[in-house]
Write a protein that binds this DNA or RNA. Structure first.
Length: 501
RNA sequence: GUUCCCAUCGUCUAGUGGCCUAGGACAUCGGCCUCUCACGCCGGUAACACGGGUUCGACUCCCGUUGGGAACGCCA
């Protein structure tokens, strides 16, 4: 059996998007799983739209995701000589012909076809040109493109593994039309190869065994099959993946109509605090399922269980809530020290001085918040009180807690209790019992005491447990904040009568 | 419009003729846990688009209808 070789072949006309990630991932999985080879190829024959920056972004994205490739990255712009050799071969063997039609003529043809309610198919007018006419036009320097002459045979068979009938499906050649394989050029200045042409040559030369790509390429496939055959190359197997939908239309990088909070660009997701493993996990599930329906998976578990015959054919819908949920799961399954590494940049970006705390305390913060934060970008807000003492207190909390008649007493008692602690008692376990003791002696319910202390030291009503916060915050800082809150409470105006109840 | 593709809870899906009074997950709604929030746990609501066949039997096979999507570029 021949070796499995797959490829990911994006065009560098923008950042890598989530749909592309799935294509890349499936190709990567299939290659890795079969001990095959995964090739990265940048399809940059469109000089106008391609940018070096995009290519770099794609490569950076692939690395960040951990989708390592074995060969490449190849750039099509560096392989032009190869394409022109093949062009010459096709020309010699009579598979292609030059067409001098102008843009306007083509537009008119399309217009007419639309009016006649049929598919716009080239009418082969250029084929009627005599050799003499062609020579004259070429010598005169008229620009032309090369068109592939679709054979008269009735069908083109596509070796498609996923879509369509179980048997290879067949496309009627009459519906294909003589397609263009090069951009306009002149006799001495050949035009750049077009997608269908360059792609086939590269896939053939790189001995790609399985072309796994989005469904939008299905209509290109019969043309490409024809090209493989004309060139005398083996036709690979094709797998056309259903299209990922968002709000009932194709999720696309060209669609400028999307919510900036939910970017399609993978690098932008990374900057929002989505994890590579989570992204791969979520995206893998858009069209594939684990044999035991497991859904929270590491890349390794996906690799172990992936198979082409568990692919789904219907277009999946991109569900942000599920992506977020899966990200949250991966966040809370990270080790605390790993989290310190990846979360610290987010804290620093928010202006917090992480050097205020040692590694151990930073890890404790991660432990406190990792079950609460689904995105890395949520950590700064969640941990802000560790870096900045509260300036204000949550309005709701003030009414509910600080207006309690015993509030000042509670804070005073807490401050005294903390002050009495020696360093060996500044840990979660003893703090928990000291706090419980104190509450017992106070003869007030923890449900009242807790929120008051919490508000005083964090300014917030929703935080992790008190003991762990105090442990990390330290003795002096905690006492300072308690005293500051007491001052604040004393300055509080009396509660309006109608709210006093 | 033409060609092609697709069709199970709101969403992602399991299901390859009897195991299905259709399973799981997200979301949602109750409850438990609890110093708050979150996590976690328990439970509820919720789907085989429709119509014909084939068959002893159809979510599963066939045909049609309807619905959705993609392509129709001298982009990839």
């Amino acid at each position: 059996m021949n070796k499995i070789r797959t490829r990911f072949a994006p065009s560098p006309t923008g950042s890598l998007h989530l749909g592309g990630v799935r294509t890349a991932f499936y190709n990567w999985l299939f290659a890795r799983q079969n001990n095959g080879t995964f090739v990265l190829r940048i399809e940059d024959t469109d000089a106008e739209r391609s940018t070096e920056e995009s290519a770099k972004g794609i490569i950076e994205s692939m690395k960040w995701l951990g989708l390592n490739w074995d060969e490449g990255p190849f750039f099509q712009s560096e392989r032009l000589a190869i394409y022109f050799d093949h062009l010459e071969k096709l020309r010699k063997n009579g598979f292609i012909y030059p067409a001098f039609d102008t843009q306007q003529e083509l537009d008119e043809m399309r217009e007419l076809a639309k009016k006649q309610k049929r598919n716009p198919i080239y009418d082969r007018r250029a084929l009627k040109l005599t050799d003499y006419e062609i020579k004259q036009k070429m010598d005169a320097g008229e620009p032309f493109v090369w068109r592939f002459k679709v054979p008269d045979s009735e069908f083109t068979e596509i070796p498609e593994l996923l879509m369509g009938e179980q048997d290879d499906h067949k496309i009627r050649n009459a519906t294909i039309g003589d397609f263009i394989i090069t951009r306009p050029g002149t006799k001495n200045n050949p035009g750049m190869p077009l997608y269908n042409f360059a792609c086939v040559i590269d896939d053939a030369l790189m001995e790609i065994s399985h072309v796994i790509r989005g469904m939008e390429h299905l209509p290109n496939t019969p043309k490409q099959v024809l090209l493989y055959k004309a060139l005398g190359y083996n036709v690979p197997k094709f797998v056309h993946l259903p299209i990922i939908m968002k709000n009932n239309k194709k999720m696309s990088k060209r669609d400028k109509d999307y919510d900036p909070n939910f970017p399609v660009s993978i690098l932008e997701r990374r900057d929002l605090g989505y994890l590579p493993d989570a992204t791969l996990n979520f995206i893998a599930l858009l069209g594939w399922s684990h044999p035991l329906s497991k859904e929270l998976l590491t890349p390794f578990e996906i690799l172990e269980n992936f198979s082409l015959d568990r692919l789904n054919k219907a277009n999946p819908n991109f569900d942000e809530q599920k992506y977020l949920f899966i990200n949250g799961w991966h966040v809370k399954n990270r080790n605390d020290d790993e989290l310190v590494q990846i979360v610290s940049p987010f804290l620093q970006k928010a202006g917090y001085d992480t050097s205020k705390y040692n590694k151990e305390n930073l890890e404790k913060m991660m432990a406190m918040e990792k079950e609460r934060c689904h995105l890395l970008a949520q950590f700064p807000d969640a941990l802000n009180f560790f870096f900045v003492a509260p300036e204000t207190y949550e309005e709701k909390g003030i009414r509910k807690s600080f207006y309690q008649p015993q509030a000042d007493l509670i804070l005073q008692t807490t401050a005294k209790m903390i002050a009495s602690l020696d360093d060996t008692e500044m840990n979660k376990a003893s703090l928990d019992s000291k706090l419980a003791n104190m509450v017992m002696n106070l003869e007030i319910k923890y449900g009242i005491v807790g929120p008051i202390i919490r508000l005083a030291i964090t300014g917030k009503t929703k935080t992790p447990g008190l003991a762990e916060i105090i442990e990390v915050l330290g003795k002096n800082e905690t006492i300072n904040r308690l005293e500051k809150a007491r001052v604040f409470i004393k300055s509080l105006p009396p509660l309006p009568i109608d709210e006093a109840s």
